[in-house]
Every structure is written in structure tokens, then in C-alpha cells.
């Protein structure tokens, strides 16, 4: 037995595909650095601390939404109600933040709670019915917009307390609050995805729902969790936005879901589920921010900017589909 070589024990080499797909994943990081270097060579105004602060602050709201939708897309779902959740939660927070009636934790908790309930409702309908997430969240997108208008009676809610306005407009040790929130949430979401049982289950459910079920995973609990987290993150985005513009706007956040989904996809999250990383999504969101900032600095009209952004999204998906093969 010892001198026969068993062909089944020969190690297989890492396949060509594995290597190509790794290259594809690195591609977005490389692209991001290339764009940054190029912009700093073209315009000296790009690589300055104040400009970079502006970019990250602007990116923070989209990034928070993108983190949530990354969880959802990894499980094979989608969440189109993000923008409406931003409006609902922003309005709810604003209602409790008028002047100094309550301490600042009250509007924050109220906003978060409304996002949690909204997200849980998405998850509940998706897991209890056979209706696809695309349709369910398309419905709740409209419901959410209506709720925001009802709660605010169709008018902006202003005169918010200073402590509330600090969340989006204040600074801590010279760093804008939205950046701090972004960094903390990035860390939390990365840990959830990579280091917890729930995170692993997300990949399993999105990668092969049946195999996940046969492994004893409670599929519905995982789905409830991701839509609820998506709602919580949307609420956080809603609070930051409301605080930054110092107004609860029932019309805020329209179309935000598309930017968030774009960030996740550019960052390598596959729309077919089962793959994706928080780092990729963060880079995706930053890339969108950097490019639009760069085009602003170069005085490119916003009409052209939209065309450029569309090309980037399609390019990223082409990269993704090459990886899938």
C-alpha cells in the first residue's frame, strides 16, 4: 500500500478560475487607487484634507445604506425601500427632536426603532409570503414614502435641537461626526459578516438556500435579521441626513436605494447572492463619491456625471459576470 501512489490524494492546484476571480476582486481596489492618483495629478484641489473630509462626509449616508443592502444582497435578496426608510426614520426622529423637548437619545432611539420595525416588516412579509423581495420592497418603498408624508403632514419639520443637529453637522476632535459613525458602523458590519455565525449563514443562504436548510439553518431567521439590519442602518442614515440638513424632510432619500445598490455591486457583491464583502462595498461607495467629487472639481456638468456613473456600474457588473463564469 505504501509504494502505490493514490491519485485521490494528489493535491489539486488552485484553479485558473479562482485566480481570475481573485484578480477581479482586487480590481475594484486597484481602480479606486488609480482614480485617486489620477485626480490628484490632474487637480491640486483633490488631495487636500478638507476636500477628502467633504468626500467621506458626503459618502457616509450612501455607505450606511450600502452596508445594509450588502447584507441583504448576499442572502440573495434586494431592498428597494431604503430611500423611503431614510425619509420615514428621518421624519420620526425630527418629530422628537423639535427644540429641546426631549434629550437627544429620544429622537435617536425613536428613529432607530422606526427603522427596525420597517425593516422587520419587510422581512416578515418576505419570509411569510412567497412574494419576491423585489416586489415586496417595491411596495414598502411606496408605503414608506406615504407614511413619511402622513407623519410630517407633507411639510418639512425644522427647528431641531442643537444637540440633534450635532450628529450630522458636529465634529469630534476635528473629525466630522458622520465620518466617525461611518467608521464605527463599517467595523461593526465587517465583524458581523466575517466573524459571526449569522454572517456565515448569510453567505450560505445566498449561496445555496436548500443546502443551508439541509444544514439545519433557520433560513427565515437569517432573512428577518438582514432586512431588520437594513432597516436599522437606513434609520441611522436617516438620522444623520436629517441632522445634517437640520430638517425632517418627507421627500428626502428618493432614489438613495439605487446609489446604495450600485455601491455594493461596484464593490463586488454579486446580485445572484452568496458573495460580497463590506470592504468592497465601502470602496464602492467611496469610488462613487470620489468620482463625482473629481468631476465637480473639473467642472464637468452633472448631466455628464450621471452618464459616467452608469458606465461604471455596468463595467463593475461585467467584471462580476466574468468572475461568475
Amino acid at each position: 500500500m505504501k509504494n502505490t501512489i493514490d491519485p485521490y490524494l494528489k493535491p489539486v492546484r488552485e484553479s485558473y478560475r479562482t485566480r481570475v476571480s481573485r484578480l477581479g476582486k482586487a480590481g475594484i481596489f486597484v481602480a479606486f487607487i488609480v482614480v485617486c492618483v489620477a485626480l490628484s495629478l490632474i487637480t491640486p484641489r483633490f488631495l487636500t484634507v478638507p476636500n477628502l473630509m467633504i468626500i467621506v462626509t458626503q459618502v457616509s449616508i450612501n455607505a450606511l445604506l450600502a452596508f445594509g443592502v450588502t447584507f441583504v444582497i448576499i442572502t440573495g435578496g434586494i431592498d428597494l425601500s431604503l430611500g423611503s426608510m431614510v425619509a420615514v426614520t428621518g421624519v420620526v426622529a425630527a418629530l422628537f427632536a423639535r427644540s429641546e423637548t426631549y434629550p437627544v437619545v429620544v429622537p435617536i432611539l425613536a428613529g432607530l426603532l422606526s427603522g427596525l420595525l420597517f425593516g422587520a416588516f419587510n422581512g416578515f412579509v418576505i419570509t411569510r409570503s412567497k412574494v419576491p423581495p423585489f416586489i415586496v420592497t417595491l411596495g414598502t418603498m411606496t408605503i414608506g414614502r406615504g407614511l413619511a408624508l402622513i407623519l410630517s403632514k407633507g411639510r418639512p419639520i425644522s427647528n431641531l435641537s442643537d444637540s440633534f443637529n450635532f450628529i450630522g453637522g458636529g465634529q469630534l476632535l476635528g473629525v466630522p461626526m458622520p465620518i466617525i459613525i461611518l467608521v464605527v458602523l463599517f467595523a461593526v458590519c465587517s465583524v458581523i459578516l466575517r466573524k459571526t455565525v449569522l454572517g456565515r449563514y448569510m453567505y450560505a443562504v445566498g449561496g445555496n438556500e436548500q443546502a443551508a436548510k439541509a444544514s439545519g439553518i433557520q433560513i427565515n431567521n437569517v432573512k428577518m435579521a438582514v432586512y431588520t439590519m437594513s432597516g436599522l442602518l437606513a434609520a441611522l442614515a436617516g438620522i444623520v441626513l436629517t441632522s445634517r440638513i437640520t430638517t425632517g424632510q418627507p421627500n428626502a432619500g428618493a432614489g438613495f436605494e439605487l446609489d446604495a445598490i450600485a455601491a455594493a455591486i461596484i464593490g463586488g457583491t454579486s446580485t445572484s447572492g452568496g458573495t460580497g464583502t463590506m470592504a468592497g462595498t465601502l470602496i464602492g461607495a467611496l469610488l462613487i463619491g470620489v468620482i463625482s467629487n473629481g468631476l465637480d472639481l473639473l467642472n464637468v456638468s452633472s448631466y455628464y456625471q450621471q452618464v459616467v456613473m452608469g458606465v461604471i456600474i455596468i463595467g463593475a457588473v461585467v467584471l462580476d459576470s466574468v468572475n461568475q463564469k
Binding site: 466573524k195 454572517g199 453567505y203 450560505a204 449561496g207 443551508a212 439545519g216 452568496g274
Partner: peptide
């Protein structure tokens, strides 16, 4: 393919999939 494994998880991650909670400490894998 349908009910057995998750293709885009690693060999390791598939092997531990049905007993994952045994590999956690303080909630972390």
C-alpha cells in the same frame, strides 16, 4: 448540488456549516 453544499463557500466553511455554533467564543467565530 441542490441540497448538499454551498459552492462559493470554502471546503472548511461547508464542513463546519451544520455545527457552526460549536466554533464560537463570545459570539465570534
Amino acid at each position: 448540488k441542490g441540497w448538499g453544499f454551498v459552492p462559493r463557500l470554502s471546503v472548511k466553511q461547508n464542513i463546519t456549516l451544520a455545527s457552526l455554533p460549536n466554533h464560537t467564543k463570545g459570539g465570534l467565530l
